[in-house]
Amino acid sequence: MESREVLGTRLRLLLDLLDDGVTALYTELDLDGFRPRYTPILRHVATEGPSSIRDLARAIGVTHSAASQTVAQLAKEDLVTLSPGADARRRIVHLTPKAEALLPAMAREWEATNAAVAELEAELPYPLSRLVDETLEALRRRPMPDRTTAAAKTQSPS
């Protein structure tokens, strides 16, 4: 089986392995139950102040839907609260005192994770982060649905 045939599966495995390493560190830092997807949102709100979900999505590079889902999880964990924005359709994300108390541990996690990523990338022939950035840019230029549709049209029937 060619590696292209299992690319999605291998990417999920890679993400799982990366997330598992970070999750293990959360336990050491008394951040049990914390999820890697929480960190970018909480760090952004901690450094930039209360933000709309749209602004958070743009700042951390995810879809509005993904940011909204993560914010909903953070609210359930009592890590953020939401208030209406100037436009009733916008919701503004604020840190709770519980989240603010976690910021020092989150900073230690962030530093340790960045050091681990630098070490990992030093072992590779080229930085994984660069390859991910270049792949994302290529998909922005020509999204995967366009690519798969075009490829399906060129395939001969079996």
Rank of each mutant, 00 (worst) to 15 (best):
L95N: 02
V6L: 12
G49S: 04
Q155V: 14
L13D: 15
D78T: 07
A115M: 12
Y38W: 06
E123H: 11
L95E: 05
G49Q: 06
T81D: 01
A66R: 02
T39E: 12
Q155I: 14
V71Q: 04
M144D: 09
F34G: 01
A88S: 11
M106N: 15
R142T: 03
E137P: 03
H94G: 06
D32W: 07
A118N: 04
V117E: 03
R130F: 12
L120W: 12
E111I: 15
D78P: 01
G85C: 07
A150K: 08
P84C: 03
W110R: 13
L56P: 00
L56F: 05
I41Y: 03
A101V: 00
S65A: 14
A72K: 04
L95D: 03
N114A: 12
A118F: 06
A101F: 03
E77N: 08
D87F: 10
R58C: 01
T63V: 00
P145D: 08
L13Y: 13
S52L: 00
E111S: 10
L95G: 06
R90E: 02
D87Q: 13
E123L: 11
E119S: 15
E48I: 05
A57F: 01
L102F: 09
I53P: 04
L13T: 15
R140A: 14
L139D: 00
R142P: 02
I60W: 00
K76M: 11
K153H: 14
A152R: 09
E123A: 10
D16P: 08
Y126P: 08
E119P: 04
R12C: 14
Q155M: 13
